[in-house]
């Protein structure tokens, strides 16, 4: 996974969750991060879609289990960039 994608993704999460100290790992889930509930999850997805200029389907968003899967999904949408 590219460092640039990971850095941008962390930035989106920090802005959406209003937490500048947040660090993400591939295995990070909503349960590991304070304030990441069902509402912020959808708002994060909107921010991710805008930042990476991708569009997720409803099923794709609901299947995501951790940040690593989200990063992989972004990469697949952008053609493996």
């Amino acid at each position: 996974m590219s460092d640039e994608l990971w850095r941008d993704l962390t930035e989106v999460f920090r802005t959406s969750l209003d937490n500048e100290d947040l660090t993400l790992a591939e295995t990070t889930t909503a349960d590991d991060v304070e304030g990441w509930d069902s509402i912020t999850h959808v708002l994060i997805m909107v921010a991710v879609e805008k930042k990476f200029r991708v569009k997720f389907t409803a099923a794709e968003i609901q299947r995501l289990e951790n940040v690593g899967q989200l990063a992989a999904l972004i990469r697949s949408k952008r053609g493996g960039v």
């Binding site: 069902s38 509402i39 708002l43 409803a58 609901q62």
Partner: peptide, 17 residues
């Protein structure tokens, strides 16, 4: 109900919520 609905109208932001 709530999450699938919110995902469909997610571009409305907090109005959608």
């Amino acid at each position: 109900l709530y999450t699938p609905l919110l995902i469909r109208i997610r571009n409305l932001g907090m109005t959608g919520v």
